[in-house]
Nucleic acid binder design. Structure first.
Lengths: 366, 366
DNA sequence: ACGCCTGCGGTAAGCGCTTACCGCAACGAT
DNA sequence: ATCGTTGCGGTAAGCGCTTACCGCAGGCGT
């Protein structure tokens, strides 16, 4: 007698199905996996038994036998501290990561894979354990920026396929990123040439982020090109987060330093903090100071003025990472050491142009 | 001879470690799992071998042997269509889901569990397959709203522990939601009593969402309380998305129907669409029409005016769902059929109050 | 009519782990 | 010195699948 919720009893196995259908477990397996042409009659018997019993094959056993789990591990860094019931905010810093993950998921679905997700605390100094745990449960790893040091990546990449996002390729791992240099060049030129701004600063992200380095370099090159100098230095060091951008502006204003005509932020998050703080001090954007971002996260269109930024194909970044990883898993030979996706300039109001009037939710093509 | 990237060779097993350390596989296993007190000397030998080899135990084999995968499946619905490289937008509709998932992850981490995530397309009419696949790979399931019909939930809940979010409890599954009625009551009273508005409408969400039903009912009860009538009917039917809210307003304006003094939206997303469309028609919020939301998603604070809404403890919703599921998995007896979390009114500018001036990223306590 | 080929479907091995069970060495008690 | 006790650590079974291998029944050729 089955109670309606007897999942505590003993899970069904392929043997139960075989018995019920009056066939061997091999036949059940063959029907379920569609191999080796079982007779239609046998097939029907098995399918009926599966249906009646509500049988679902155990993934672990399958994986063990197949040497394939059909799972990819995704590890990212998060800033939250769990204080039991006081979760700190800056939720939207997660947006970028979440959209990438969604892309990974889309790619994975096409191949019947699922995503095993795990995040690592910023304060966690040895994420090795978590990464190893995920590695053991998956067929390959996608690592976001700032999760593991290069040596850590090399280490784990020796034992399992690894794709990094916005990182650096290693002999054993592939990196997927977007074309920071081209995007930044286009943006900087727009500010310098189209708008004619002559005092410009780059508000940096994490000092050790390859993305940040590439953006900074492209920015400075382009600025030098027109024969002026970029405003740089310690003051202009942010951390990819809104609070970081806000702090920079507060510092500058507090010390009575001048502001440049345009502030190029390392990412959209930072720009949000900057714009907010400027507004607090009644400094108008873009009339007094132009501000730009990088990423084109969804909120960028909700700001006032709407944010001029560089669009990265965020979701596609994730989908690509999966595709590359998949080819490594299925052993189709290692692909290129690095895949670079194109970016594009999105001109909205914050650089001084007329803002566009498309409702945020009707914009298409991500 | 090992090449630096020979993960193609043959994965390490516990036998390799045992050989290297000069002990039996049982000892290796015991050291790795810290049971049965192996001698410190043995322990050190094993640990050394593990370190040198970079061994990571196979999760599938462990799971098979342990009858525990340490994985929870999370399934949610998404609106995106994958058109190869044209991803449709409304990205932020994902926010709510993502924040919940983050909460689940936080809870899971505490117990050494990882998240297996999978989304189901809105247009997918038989998500059964995906859910079954996830079920096979995990120890229990967390199902977001709109993933499975009630009968579908009952079916799968017979074979595996299931917790639903914003759904309905079934004999075999537990539901976790926030207190819609209390939140809506508080909000409606604020509009009716504090502001004295006398014409109010509820812009609905999905007709079959329990959350929506509960909110609508509480709203109407509260409105009836003060002796006036709520504006209802087909016109006021949205879909939880910005585009849905926009469409409702456009319809009303297009048909030259009057607007109420206050529009209570089923969720924040809807409110975004409403506010945008009102702005397009130069109708001022809150001077001409007050608008409110529900959820308090992060963007709510970036709107102009900032959105008055009901805060749900979104992340905690997820963490709670995991905790409940965990207790079911570890067989500590089934908990309550439903867990309800408290909500709170967040008064900002869109209802007609003075907006608060806290920078969005400094707000704490989610 | 008999043997051979074809192919469905059953038996059993093995995937990499955990752990019950047991042998054995070393120690203390008598 | 002998036996009992203790506890470390090895052997092997088994977790639920997939699949190589093989037996066997039926159809065909001669």
């Amino acid at each position: 007698m089955e109670t309606p919720d007897d999942h505590g009893s003993r899970p069904l196995t392929i043997y139960d199905v075989a018995r019920r259908a009056g066939v061997s477990i091999a036949s059940v397996s063959r029907v379920l996996n569609g191999r080796n042409s079982p007779r239609p009659e046998t097939k029907e018997k098995v399918l009926a038994a599966v249906r009646e019993l509500g049988f679902v094959p155990d993934g672990a056993a399958r994986a063990l036998s197949n040497r394939l789990k059909e799972v990819v591990g995704v590890v990212f860094r998060h800033a939250n501290v769990q204080d039991d019931d006081a979760f700190s905010d800056e939720d939207e810093s997660l947006l970028f990561t979440d959209v990438i993950n969604r892309g990974v998921e889309l790619g994975a679905r096409n191949k019947g894979f699922d995503l095993l997700m795990s995040s690592v605390d910023v304060y966690d100094h040895s994420p090795q354990g978590r990464v190893a745990s995920i590695a053991g449960k998956s067929d390959g790893l996608i690592l976001h920026d700032q999760v593991l040091s290069t040596v850590g990546i090399v280490r784990v990449a020796q034992r399992t396929p690894v794709v990094t996002l916005a990182g650096t390729p290693t002999p054993a791992s592939v990196n997927v990123r977007s074309d920071n240099a081209a995007g930044m060049r286009e943006l900087t030129r727009h500010l310098l040439v189209d708008h004619g701004y002559r005092t410009v600063a780059y508000l940096a992200g994490h000092a050790d982020s390859p993305d940040n380095l590439a953006r900074a370099e492209a920015f400075e090159l382009e600025v030098a090109e027109v024969g002026i100098e970029a405003w740089t230095g310690e003051v202009w060091r942010g951390n990819y987060m809104a609070a970081g951008g806000a702090k920079v502006i507060k510092d500058i204003l507090g010390r009575n330093l001048p502001l440049p005509r345009a502030i190029v932020c390392a990412n959209d998050q930072t720009a949000i903090g900057v714009m907010y703080t400027l507004a607090q001090h009644h400094i108008r954007v873009p009339q007094d100071v132009a501000v730009t971002g990088f990423d084109d996260i969804p909120v960028a269109r909700h700001l006032h003025p709407q944010l001029t930024t560089i669009r990265q194909p965020i979701q596609k970044l994730g989908a690509t990472a999966f595709d590359v990883l998949y080819s490594m898993i299925s052993g189709e030979g290692r692909p290129e050491p690095e895949v670079v996706l194109p970016t594009s300039l999105v001109v909205r109001g914050s650089c001084g142009c007329q803002g566009e009037a498309v409702p945020p939710w009707e914009a298409s093509e991500r």
